[in-house]
Design a protein around this nucleic acid. Structure first.
Length: 590
DNA sequence: GCCGTTTTCGGCCCGACTGTTTTCAGTCG
């Protein structure tokens, strides 16, 4: 049974945690963490690379780790890991997740006080037993208790992109109003468009940090101030989201924004690169290596492109900064250029290809959705109400599809009369049944402009079965798009266990587009899978799955996923003009 | 444990904040 990339990454992260607690060399620990990250970034299943004997192609995989992966793949076990788990018990490792508790403290708690679980840690802190340890005191105890408390409140440590974005925008807008503020932006994983956000990093350019901090700490919704320094403050909001604000001088905006945007792996790579050029880079400046260390001595940068250029690199859009090959590409292109200059943007999209109306479980009628889409500047939309096979909703039957066509015709006629250049297309989100058949007959499907097929049920079918099922659905010549392919729900439910390589090859062969669903809870396909699909030549669609007019505004979330997937407009079918889209839809399949 | 158009050994990104400290270790990002 081959392990998934996620499973492998989890194991290596766990190894890193336990070695860290044992006091192992930090660089060895980092090697395991880095390899875990690189495995999650890998476009292909590590199991495939293992079969081909090319494991060491994965960055960070050397002889030792390759041997460990091999043992895991062959036997499903890893003796080294089993031993480590015996040496450092699960409860001890779990303590690392408590905020303000790191490997050194876990080791102390465990070895000196015999604490082997978070519950025991909490009891010891309450009893005042931690304060006798070196560099620990009453305040440290309180912080640990607060950390355990906040951990209990939150089911997961990460907040969905779609939830964090509006909050960050609101705070940034407030900080921009503060007198003396030149610029304010959110940075970090949010600026990179990552699907979930650990915390919100906001960076502000202002010569006087004090009023900025005051305004920030007075924001509504702050539950707890975690740190309040001169130039850096942190707070936890009532919904559990942590927000960090950092104030810098305007002349260092470029280096600071780059630094706080990350990712960590990207920054490490850029800084190693700087070192090779005899330079050192921090959030304030680029300086000569070994020279006098201070912001005054170095060169400062007011924007990111000049900074990247100084390091001999092309500019790298934030969404690509994950150490997934972008640094190498930027070096190859050189200063003054841009990595992936034609990366897809929100403005490239001409339509939205998945939305629901009152014909099934949507909130409004066809015209309301059309008007909202027109206001967004689109040229077309595809109405994709659910079919009757998904029992829970007022699904479409062949008869109701015919009725809905009349309404769509009326809407198009009305818009034409108003002189609006816009087209409402009729589609459907057809159910893929457990055996891969569809719940509408072909003669009905053939009357629709575009057909989306989605798997909603039996997502836990074994890999072979569910893969064959989706492929069978795609083989239907009337199917154009596979909707939210994995079926995952962020922070709630894992997606189906597909053989993605097989699925993508089938999509390519049967010329079916794969959706990047922009619903805040889905973002499905994810960035890594979408990148692999696009790399293989698959077509994609980016759609909101809106159930009300406001839902159409979620498109940016799907675009961010697509940008992280290195996607360009030519492979996104709803970035095409209507005529091209319809021509593609009418393809005859051999 | 990984990695190498300066090295197969000796490096490995960089700094803010906090709390417990008379100079810094631990944690975090």
């Amino acid at each position: 049974m081959p392990l998934s990339n996620q499973q492998l990454a989890d194991i290596f992260n766990d190894i890193a945690d336990r070695l860290d607690i044992q006091g192992e060399l930090v660089f060895k620990v980092r090697a395991y963490r880095t390899v875990a990250e690189n495995i999650l970034n890998a476009p292909r299943p590590i199991a495939d690379l293992w079969r081909e004997g090319v494991l060491e192609q994965v960055p960070g995989v050397g002889k030792e780790i390759a041997a460990k992966i091999d043992e895991l793949m062959r036997t499903g076990r890893l003796e080294f890991y089993e031993r480590l788990r015996r040496e450092v018990p699960d409860g001890v490792a779990a303590m690392l997740r408590v905020p303000n508790v790191g490997p050194k403290r876990v080791k102390e708690f465990w070895e000196k006080l015999g604490i082997t679980s978070i519950d025991e840690l909490e009891a010891a802190a309450r009893a005042g037993k931690l304060r006798d340890l070196p560099r620990m005191g009453e305040k440290a105890e309180q912080k640990i208790l607060a950390g355990i408390e906040s951990m209990k409140r939150r089911a997961t440590g990460r907040v969905r992109l779609g939830d964090a974005l509006p909050i960050a925008r609101r705070i940034v807008a407030a900080l921009r109003q503060v007198p003396g503020v030149h610029k304010a932006e959110y940075a970090g994983s949010l600026r990179r468009g990552k699907e979930t956000i650990g915390d919100v990093d906001i960076i502000v350019a202002a010569s006087d940090p004090e009023p900025v901090m005051q305004t920030f700490l007075a924001q509504p919704g702050i539950a707890e101030v975690l740190a309040a320094g001169e130039t850096k403050s942190s707070a936890r909001l009532e919904n559990g989201l942590q927000v960090d604000v950092r104030v810098v001088e305007p002349r260092v905006w470029g280096t600071a924004l780059q630094y706080f945007t990350g990712s960590q792996l990207h920054n490490i790579k850029v800084r190693e690169l700087a070192q090779k050029k005899g330079l050192t880079l921090n959030e304030y400046a680029v300086s000569k290596l070994g020279g006098k260390d201070s912001a005054d001595g170095g060169e400062t940068f007011e924007d990111e492109p000049t900074l990247y250029a100084r390091l001999g690199m092309a500019y790298i859009p934030p969404e690509l900064r994950e150490d997934r090959g972008e640094v190498e590409k930027a070096l190859e292109l050189g200063p003054g250029r841009v990595v992936m200059p034609d990366l897809i943007a929100l403005s490239d999209l001409r339509g939205d290809l998945q939305m629901h109306t009152t014909w099934s479980d949507g909130a409004t009628d066809v015209m309301s959705m059309a008007r909202a889409a027109i206001a967004l500047g689109y040229e077309y939309i595809l109405i994709t109400d659910h079919t009757a096979g998904l029992g829970v909703v007022n699904g479409l039957t062949p008869e109701r599809i015919a009725e809905q066509r009349k309404e769509i015709d009326r809407v198009n006629a009305q818009l034409r009369k108003e002189g609006v250049r816009f087209r409402v297309l009729q589609g459907a989100e057809v159910e893929v049944r457990g055996d891969g058949s569809l719940d509408l007959p072909d003669e009905v499907l053939s009357q629709l402009d575009l057909v989306q097929a989605s798997v909603h049920t039996a997502l836990t079918q074994p890999r072979e079965k569910i893969t064959a099922r989706a492929i069978k659905a795609m083989q239907n010549p009337h199917v154009h798009i596979l909707g939210h392919p994995s079926g995952r729900l962020l922070n709630e439910r894992e997606g189906a266990d597909y053989d993605w390589e097989a699925l993508f090859r089938a999509a390519l062969e049967y010329r079916v587009a794969l959706e990047i669903n922009a619903d805040p809870s889905r973002l499905d396909l994810n960035d890594v899978l979408a990148r692999r699909a696009a790399e293989l030549g698959c077509k994609l669609s980016i759609s909101t799955d809106a159930h009300a007019p406001d839902g159409l505004n979620n498109m940016i979330l799907g675009v961010l996923v697509a940008r992280r997937a290195w996607v360009t407009p030519d492979s996104v079918i709803n970035a095409w003009p209507l005529t091209k889209l319809l021509k593609w839809a009418n393809k005859t399949r051999a």
